[in-house]
Amino acid sequence: MSEVTDLVEMLEKTGIPMSNELIEALLRTEPSDFTDFPLESFWHDFPVPFLVTDSGVTKTISAPHMIVTMLHHLELDEGLHVLLMGSKGGYLATLIDIICGHGGKVTIIEPHDEIAEHTSNVLERRKQCGLIRVLGKEALEDPAWDRDVDRVLFTGSIREIPDFVELLIEEGGFILGPFGGRIQQRLMKKEWQGGAWLETDLGGVVFGPMDIRESERGFPDPLFIADEFEDALILISSVLGENSEEVYRLERLVESLRELPPGLPEITSSFTEEEIIEHPVIELLMTEAEWLNELWPTFVDILGFDLEGIVPDLEEPLFGKRHADFTP
């Protein structure tokens, strides 16, 4: 455990607030119990992978300074019930379990079966102080849930508090998490007091997206695409200027996407080329193809999604030529 001790000493020197209970939890928890990947990056205060999924997605345990920061702001105490949105391999839940003690409870909501199974297997090998359980997102729809949650921690970025979480928070309980899009987020504490959310801004952070809601969306969801384009606007406006024609057109496109009627069908493999092209979302994007053409590769780089494999081959490519201002 010498590496853990050195890590704690390093974090103390940075001035990050750490209670005695948090320090004890760190010293009692060996990170190697939660990952088979080398821990060199973790000892140097960087994230470390704990799993590469079958689809090739790397899932990580957050950097130590961010873990300590989040646990400090959670204001943990014995006997609390903490809802953890996203497993982080079980490491974060174990630290919370030690701090909250024998009367405490940690409920992990992990939307991906593969990650949930991995986390459950890891936690089964460890002795727990209180209760740690790993559930899928369908558990949030269980009517048996009571408003007995004291803290909620989101381990990925979200844009707003999901309705199902609002129903779980006790008076005086609060939510902690990175609120914003893919590019810009703020670590926010939102406390439920007297029927309203009281917000405290704890500073800028960078997290990957919390995909509980996104995992339920089919393509092409116009609201999802609008959200992604709004994120891209932050970068594009800083490069091209807030008054540029591209920024203006993208802002109008976002408005048009949000105005599309709800309940549009998901494009599936059974769709013909004609049906795909006539889909309202694709049709809207295609009408903007002339100017979107140069920006689309930037969207792919920033946002990580494309229409390849969805939109059929056309005589002229729909999107693809990189804008000169974004060419290295």
Rank of each mutant, 00 (worst) to 15 (best):
N20L: 11
L7Y: 12
G104P: 08
I99H: 06
E230H: 07
L27W: 01
E216S: 11
L74N: 08
G173W: 01
P262Y: 04
A93N: 08
G172T: 08
P312T: 09
L257V: 07
I212Y: 01
G177F: 12
L260A: 14
V57R: 10
G101H: 04
T155W: 07
E40L: 02
L83R: 15
A289V: 09
K105G: 05
I267V: 15
A93D: 01
V134T: 11
A196S: 15
R217S: 03
T53F: 09
I175T: 01
N293Q: 06
I23H: 01
G309W: 06
E216Q: 15
E21P: 04
V152T: 04
R28I: 07
E214D: 14
R133C: 09
K321A: 13
V311G: 00
G218A: 11
L223M: 09
E245T: 13
A116V: 04
F37S: 04
V4S: 11
T53Y: 00
E214C: 13
M18D: 11
E160S: 14
V4F: 06
D148N: 12
E171I: 02
A324V: 07
T94R: 13
D150R: 05
L168T: 03
G180L: 14
D325F: 04
Q193Y: 09
V149G: 12
N121M: 12
Q184I: 09
G172Y: 00
D142L: 01
A196Y: 03
L74C: 05
E170F: 03
D227Y: 06
M286F: 11
E275N: 06
E283K: 05
E259K: 15
L284H: 03
L292V: 07
L233A: 09
L292R: 08
L307P: 00
S62R: 13
K137E: 14
E110G: 06
G79K: 13
F46E: 14
K105R: 14
G56S: 05
L292A: 05
I175R: 00
G172S: 03
Q128G: 13
E308Q: 05
P222G: 03
E40V: 11
G320R: 06
M188C: 10
N20Y: 05
P143L: 05
A25R: 10
I276R: 05
F229Q: 08
R186Q: 10
K321P: 09
F319Q: 12
G172D: 11
D231P: 10
S120M: 15
G79H: 12
F42W: 14
L233E: 08
I67K: 05
D45V: 00
L39T: 05
L167H: 03
E141H: 06
L7A: 10
R28W: 01
E166G: 05
S270E: 14
E228M: 12
I161C: 11
G177I: 06
P38H: 00
D97Q: 02
P280A: 02
T14V: 15
T58L: 03
E141F: 00
T14K: 15
K321V: 13
V239G: 10
G208C: 02
D301M: 03
E214K: 08
V165C: 02
S238A: 12
L314I: 02
G79T: 13
G90H: 12
V134Q: 01
L153Q: 08
L318V: 15
G204S: 13
G130E: 13
W43H: 13
T155V: 09
D306E: 13
E171Q: 08
A232S: 15
I96K: 04
L80T: 12
P64G: 10
L260V: 15
G304H: 04
F207L: 07
R258F: 06
G172C: 02
E78M: 12
E12D: 11
